[in-house]
Design a protein around this nucleic acid. Structure first.
Length: 609
DNA sequence: AAAAAAC
């Protein structure tokens, strides 16, 4: 079994390598994206490390990075913990972290591949592709007591040289808005509920403070002589692929910091994950089911957890996931709120979910980062009335048009969302039978198939991916030019997450939805969302919307505001009292909301990830 | 009603 798994990884790597040649300059450096690297592929020879990865700390101190004035702060008058000998040099990092991590025979795999020297253009394309100018005037709202002020550069944050170097390797020039606000809050030790957009560096926003915080406590003593491992940080996400993606990102950020990141999720052989855990783990990235398994086997203990992060937190706390999350957070051995630091990230935070989430938080700060204008400026949204029976032929028309347009290429991927797993299989079969290069991803496929499909899509081998909502949230897939809602979801939030797979990294995107009489409950929130996004709303859709089917769509959740509003401001919650006393808006608009720019109509959540 | 998430 493990052989076939390893083979599949090897195969996908081969495939990825093969794609490099035909994919111009942007595929090879994505090799480290491979979701799971088995041990026998992990120990690359030292010669594969790029020069920049060497441990010559002196040569890197403050080299032209941001404001150099603070460059010496980290190594100089730093906090007591930093006095540890050899800090910042991976070679001295052993006693308290994973055994053998730094031994020559188990060198840390360089997650940056070789793109430091060879292919700088990739990183520019993928990492600085973020349109920072578009982020300048973003409305930001914070509430809670004593909110730490935002920062404007990475350099003015005391993250540590090793982490700063990785930030440079990632080609992150300056922090995105969510990073500017969230990182100081987290470094200040505060709990956080943040509404933020994944494409703008959300993962980094919770990873940087965690990694930095762990680096500052190099001598944490953990129980020994047991097979149980004691991670210091736990990052939970709702899908395996998203956990895998977070793991890949976190590994880049923690390269040569001595901080070990391990991922655990279902569908993959548990033994390899156990071996990884035994080698030491500081940050555990996991999906809930597999984590519960590991906890019940007593292979993982949460008693040393200092940091808890929930990505896509509203999904993690919705009906399907809540019991598992409560079990993990409240019924195992994790320190309670207040004794750990908890960070919840999501785009949409329905009031009910916020209320529930407050159980996991202690004196938290609420942070909402919006976009000027509409949240989906970069995405052109179209809605077409298509009867159920006509959907396939209509889809084919669209795909044929793309093909003739020349947009049907490896650089222009098309993501087709359907409502059911069966529907995904059927549509994939129909598309491939019709000569379209398509594959599919959904929860009834094996993990191997899922990861192969995602890779095949990303590399352009099959530029059409049929997906259920498993692919709706968080996944960062470059070059998705078109998202087609073959079946519209019932929840406007899901729509928002789905179309957010395109229009990323400063690129424009197109989102087409097939609407018919089965989607009437979505008419109003959809029309409102599109209007707020300055999209053309068909007259027929407006008519459907005005009929107010289904009691107004999902007003029940949004409560009349977009997702980014602190529920503690609700009068029903604080009963006329100024509950938290420390409300402030960071210089943007009135405290009451967003008014025009970035705001949404009744019942519509924000269009963030 | 569906999807996701352990074996």
């Amino acid at each position: 079994m493990s052989t076939s798994w390893a083979d599949s990884v090897a195969n996908s790597q081969t495939e990825n390598a093969a794609a490099t040649g035909s994919f111009e300059n942007n595929a090879s450096s994505r090799a480290p994206r491979t979701t799971y690297v088995p041990p026998h592929l992990r120990n690359r020879p030292a010669s594969s490390d790029p020069p920049a990865a060497s441990n010559s700390a002196p040569s890197q101190a403050g080299t032209g990075y941001g404001a150099p004035s603070t460059g010496s702060r980290w190594n100089g008058n730093s906090r007591q913990d930093f006095g540890r000998p050899g800090y910042g040099s991976g070679s001295s990092w052993n006693s308290s972290r994973g055994r053998g991590w730094d031994r020559g025979r188990e060198r840390e795999v360089n997650p940056f591949g070789n793109d430091d020297d060879a292919e700088p253009s990739f990183s520019e394309q993928e990492n600085t592709g973020i349109n920072f100018d578009a982020y300048e005037d973003i409305p930001v709202e914070t509430s809670g007591s004593n909110v730490p002020p935002p920062v404007n550069t990475f350099a003015e944050i005391d993250l540590g040289e090793a982490l700063n170097q990785n930030i440079r390797r990632c080609k992150y020039v300056k922090p995105t808005p969510v990073q500017r606000h969230a990182i100081p809050i987290s470094l200040g030790g505060r709990d956080l509920m943040a509404c933020a957009q994944t494409g703008s560096g959300k993962t980094a926003a919770f990873c940087f403070p965690i990694i930095s915080g762990i680096m500052r406590e190099p001598n944490i003593q953990r129980p020994r002589g047991t097979r149980t491992v004691f991670p210091l940080a736990l990052i939970l996400s709702p899908t395996r692929e998203l956990s895998s993606q977070i793991h890949d990102e976190a590994r880049k950020f923690s390269y040569q910091t001595g901080v070990r990141v391990v991922v655990a999720y279902g569908g993959a052989p548990i033994n390899q994950q156990l071996r990884e855990l035994e080698r030491g783990v500081d940050i555990l990235v996991a999906t809930p089911g597999r984590l519960v398994d590991l906890l019940e086997r007593a292979r993982v203990s949460l008693q040393m957890i200092r940091y808890l992060a929930l990505d896509e937190a509203d999904r993690m706390l919705d009906m399907g996931f809540e019991p598992q999350i409560r079990k993990i957070v409240e019924q195992m051995d994790m320190p309670p709120a207040g004794l750990r630091q908890t960070m919840l990230f999501s785009a949409t935070f329905p009031r009910e979910i916020q209320r529930m989430a407050a159980d996991f938080l202690s004196d938290y700060i609420f942070l909402a980062v919006g976009r000027v204008g509409s949240s989906t400026d970069l995405i052109v949204q179209r809605v077409e009335f298509v009867h159920e029976a006509d959907k396939r032929s209509h889809l084919m028309d669209l795909l044929h048009a793309q093909k003739e347009n020349g947009t049907h290429s490896k650089q222009a991927l098309t993501l087709v969302f359907v409502e059911t797993k069966k529907g995904a299989d059927a549509l994939e079969y129909w598309l491939t039978s019709s000569g379209f290069p398509a594959t599919s991803i959904h929860g009834d496929r094996s993990q191997q198939e899922r990861e192969y499909a995602l890779r095949s899509f990303k590399t352009g081998k099959t530029p059409i991916l049929v997906a259920t909502d498993v692919a709706a949230r968080g996944l960062d897939i470059p070059h998705v030019a078109h998202v087609i809602n073959f079946d519209l979801p019932n929840d406007i939030d899901d729509y928002v997450h789905r179309i957010g797979r395109t229009g990323r990294a400063g690129k424009t995107g197109l989102a087409t939805a097939f609407f018919n009489e089965n989607n009437t409950s979505l008419a109003r929130p959809l029309a409102d969302l599109m209007q707020e996004a300055n999209q053309e709303v068909p007259a027929w859709l407006t008519r459907y919307a005005s009929r107010a089917y289904g009691g107004g769509g999902r007003n029940r959740r949004g409560g009349g505001r977009f997702g980014g509003r602190d529920f503690r401001r609700d009068t029903s919650y604080n009963r006329g009292q100024d509950y938290y006393g420390g409300a402030n808006s960071s210089g943007y608009g009135a405290a009451g909301g967003y008014g025009g720019a970035g705001g949404y109509g009744p019942g519509v959540s924000s269009a963030w990830d």
